[in-house]
């Protein structure tokens, strides 16, 4: 398959769009007609051919434009990328994981030649060619985590494993659902999850931490999370809330189908070999309500999920303001027919 990369923007004129093939492979997060938190974790990579679950790090038609958008965000706010001094080794682990995976899974786009510690990396879509010495940061233009995550879609958090807890000690965070690396850096698992409503009392975080601490090099995992975003904007950060928050007020019954996006995070968990840290990639996918409703199953299901969602969750996910308008729009795409189990669209 030859990938055509879109020339599109995630800010300003928002020219982002999904091809029909991209819509059909969208990681729709609801496997039933209702939603509540669960530790919905499964092994990764692995999934139907062509799905975003097939490869370790999915590369799609938005790759080049997303990397351009990341560079714009970093130029305006360098603190979106931080690595505490003890996390450099984890950065090398991540660089190795991504380079090896991409060269294996997308040989037409990426290649990696290794002669001992002397590595030669080629990234054709971005026109990058780099020779460097593995584990010698002076041979790269920036730190290893920053270097590789400027070439990989999605946000990346590197979690140090100490004292039975996980610590957010490094990250590249430019496409986040309203949380701040600069605020969270150095926090532990319970601290950075403190704003999530209801879940602590349900014991979700204790179970999740126990699970994450037991992740080994042998097997990686993934889960899907979701929220709602007005306009196809990657950088919905607290730092820039003044830029995107007011856009919630621009939604009308006439434009809600094309202006309101379902934002899905494909989160995965990887034990890194050299540092024993945990890599936590958070890949963001965006699809408008109109795009999703081209798949009748998804239109019906999304309507039922959002109509019946706990009000606290609608508030936390930031769409309480426009909820009625969204549900009204989706109701027109729900004929009441039953939906098939699982997340994939019907044929």
């Amino acid at each position: 398959m030859t990938l055509q990369f879109n020339d599109e923007t995630f800010r300003g004129d928002y020219t982002y769009s999904n091809s029909s093939a991209a819509v059909r492979r969208f990681p729709f997060p609801f496997d039933r007609d209702s939603y509540m938190y669960s530790v919905n974790i499964e092994p990764h990579p692995g999934g139907p051919e062509g799905s975003p679950f097939e490869h370790a790090f999915d590369v799609d038609e938005h790759y080049v434009a997303e990397m351009r958008d990341r560079a714009i965000t970093l130029a305006g706010d360098p603190l979106r990328c931080q690595s505490l001094p003890h996390m450099e080794l984890a950065g090398w682990d991540l660089l190795e994981l991504i380079m090896v995976s991409k060269a294996r899974d997308y040989p037409a786009l990426f290649s990696l030649a290794r002669d001992g510690d002397r590595w030669h990396w080629t990234n054709r879509p971005l026109g990058i060619e780099q020779r460097f010495t593995f584990l010698d940061a002076s041979t790269l233009p920036c730190g290893p985590m920053e270097y590789i995550t400027r070439q990989a879609q999605g946000d990346f958090a590197l979690l140090d494993a100490r004292e039975g807890n996980l610590w957010m000690d490094a990250g590249m965070i430019t496409s986040q659902a309203d949380w701040s690396l600069d605020f969270d850096v150095g926090m532990n698992f319970f601290e950075w999850h403190a704003p999530v409503p209801k879940a602590r009392g349900m014991g979700v975080f204790d179970k999740a931490l126990k699970f994450l601490n037991a992740v080994t090099q042998e097997q990686s995992y993934r889960r899907l999370n979701w929220t709602m975003t007005v306009n196809p904007r990657l950088d919905t950060s607290p730092e820039n809330y003044h830029k995107w928050g007011p856009e919630k007020r621009t939604v009308t019954p006439d434009n809600v189908g094309t202006k309101q996006f379902l934002r899905v995070e494909l989160q995965s968990f990887w034990r890194l070999p050299r540092s024993n840290a945990l890599a936590f990639p958070i890949r963001c996918y965006l699809a408008s309500l109109a795009d999703l409703c081209t798949q009748p199953k998804w239109g019906r299901r999304l309507h039922r999920v959002l109509r019946d969602l706990d009000p606290d969750l609608a508030e936390y996910k930031g769409f309480a303001l426009n909820r009625a308008m969204i549900v009204d729009y989706l109701a027109r795409h729900d004929d009441g027919a039953p939906t098939s189990p699982g997340i994939f669209p019907d044929r």
Partner: peptide
């Protein structure tokens, strides 16, 4: 032989 796992890692700080 299982792949390696670590319960006694160095504190790199």
């Amino acid at each position: 032989v299982s792949p390696p796992a670590n319960l006694f890692a160095l504190d790199l700080r």
